[in-house]
Design a protein around this nucleic acid. Structure first.
Lengths: 339, 339
DNA sequence: CTGTTAGCGCGTTCAG
DNA sequence: CTGAACGCGCTAACAG
């Protein structure tokens, strides 16, 4: 690693002269500046980020804590965060919790040792289930700003970015009604999480509002381990719905496949819509109509909220420290032929 | 941020006493140690990682450079890296290049400023196509070790981890032959990359060895933009193959869907096998038989090779600096009903 | 047993 | 115009 000291030695000037020259200080004569810069370039000098950080108390690095990097939604958000961070000259340290509260606590510890300027987090399922946010609260007491997305709680005061889960499904039911659908089923896999609850609530409310009644038999709750294929088949045969909304994308695709096997025409006899991702919707034929969550936009906005906090802290604009934003990112329905 | 200085002030001892006490130095009396530790705990003291890094010249952080975080394969590898890094107390800074050589150059610049102890990289498509590895070569000249995976070149001397692409497809053809298949088609989407070439070569060699001849019409090359659905359908109708191997998973799934639409029975009349991922194979019915690339294992091994280099550097074991390992991770075929 | 000093790499006073 | 001195937070060599 080539340092200021090294440059100074070779040029036989002092370290501070080199430093000033590289920073275009008016104190240094033009010839000296050029000499310094040329050697710096030749030796490919890069200022040591660590030393800079120690001095400035800013690392230009943020931390991201997510439950699972393999989950398509989270990797999309992560991608969006990377995008925004990159544009603003920030590095990103990612930590995954694998839905474990213990790992989440550890992760926040790691990010509490001064190596990041801010944190973006989606809490683990276990954290949400246990309703134990002490580690997060503790973290918010420190000077490092934090932004939460998707997996969120009212118990913590900070900026948040969430999806409009309730409205998304509510509007979808409305839209299906307009297509003439009368018996709409809802398949949910993520029962314990708020996200799942919001969606279920949206479905119930919409059922009352648009179909005049709510039949709880039309909600199929599937735990992750069970044989989805079998349960979905039974569900379709028993209830004979003319539309299905799936809270995740896999069950949406499976529904299409099953319906085809049962000789049900899609979309003529059955509309299928799923929450999820455009890319993955290609995996069925006809392609699944998807309620698209703007993952990358959620990432973008999260970073923007975070950088606002960080800057206001450093530059003293003190963005009202006690008032926080909760940003709601709308979903959008992308046609895929199955609706 | 609570510092040693702060603790020292409150306890009215010197900074170095506090430091030694927290590090269980025998130089410090037990009562003092306890006093210090108890206050440290109470105030939730965390040693400043940045300062530690500056002193030790080790950041306990590695950098990962990948083309695309949304690519399932790379996110799997990334997950494996995280796993191994986490176990060894390392943080991970990820940078994506989006297949651009410019961004790759930038990424390596970023990681050259002393913020990481080592780098794991899969080069961008553009880098491979342009055959320009100067930025990588330059990087290897520095003291930071680098490990390459998947997207690899002979031009650079460093540890590497790759998939056994040639063998994977070679053995797959052999296995299909044993099932009685005689007309095996190959669908490739990634023509420009070595990976794709290795697979194509393996296919050709196997065709000669096991089927007695190689018919180049049985290779379908699809560029990313075109309508895959249409081209695959024509390919199947024209050639009437009894087996299809797809170099990516999406085309595998699409093939299954098309065959079903054409009234071709799977797997009775047509076997379909695709390179890819277990999870995604669920998206078709019958589930796609997949040639599984051990993404997480590739990540694991990459990290292990890297940590070896880093340790040998610091602890002077000097793992023969001029001899590098190329590790080949075998694939495995997972049955899914389509073969 | 405890404190003082020095130095990791850098930018920023303040003197010359 | 240039250099010496200081401090960010920490550890380690050296005094006491």
């Amino acid at each position: 690693m080539i340092t200021l000291k090294e440059l100074a030695k070779q040029l036989e000037v002092s370290v501070s002269t080199v430093s000033k020259a590289l920073n275009d200080s008016t104190e240094i004569s033009t010839p000296t500046v050029e000499k310094v810069k040329s050697l710096a370039k030749k030796l490919n000098y890069r200022p040591n980020k660590i030393a800079l950080s120690l001095k400035s108390n800013r690392t230009l690095t943020i931390g991201v804590v997510i439950p699972d990097i393999l989950n398509r939604f989270y990797s999309k958000v992560l991608d969006g965060i990377h995008d925004a961070a990159d544009k603003n000259g920030y590095d990103v340290i990612t930590v995954t919790t694998r839905e474990s509260i213990t790992k989440e606590v550890d992760s926040l510890q790691i990010l509490s040792s001064g190596n990041v300027d801010g944190v973006i987090i989606a809490m683990s399922e276990e954290t949400l289930n246990k309703n134990d946010f002490s580690h997060i609260k503790e973290f918010t007491m420190k000077e490092t700003p934090i932004v939460m997305f998707d997996r969120v709680t009212d118990k913590i005061n900070c900026d948040k970015v969430i999806i409009d889960d309730f409205d998304a499904i509510y509007n979808e039911v409305k839209s299906l009604k307009q297509l003439g659908r009368k018996k709409i089923g809802f398949i949910s896999t993520i029962n314990d999480l708020n996200v799942g609850k919001y969606r279920a609530n949206g479905f119930r409310k919409a059922s009352y509002d648009f179909l005049g009644k709510f039949d709880k038999n039309l909600i199929l709750k599937i735990s992750k381990d069970l044989d989805k294929h079998f349960k979905i088949q039974k569900f379709i045969q028993k209830n004979n719905p003319d539309a299905i909304i799936s809270a995740d994308i896999l069950c949406g695709v499976i529904s299409i496949n099953i319906a085809r096997d049962l000789g049900i025409k899609i979309p003529e006899e059955l509309s299928v819509v799923g929450f999820g991702d455009k890319t993955i919707s290609e995996y069925s034929s006809p392609k699944l109509t998807t309620i698209y969550q703007h993952g990358s936009e959620i990432g973008n906005r999260s970073f923007e909220l975070l950088i606002d906090r960080m800057h206001s802290r450093w530059f003293g604009l003190e963005k009202n420290t006690n008032s926080f934003t909760t940003e709601i990112i709308p979903t959008i329905t992308l046609g895929g032929g199955s609706k």
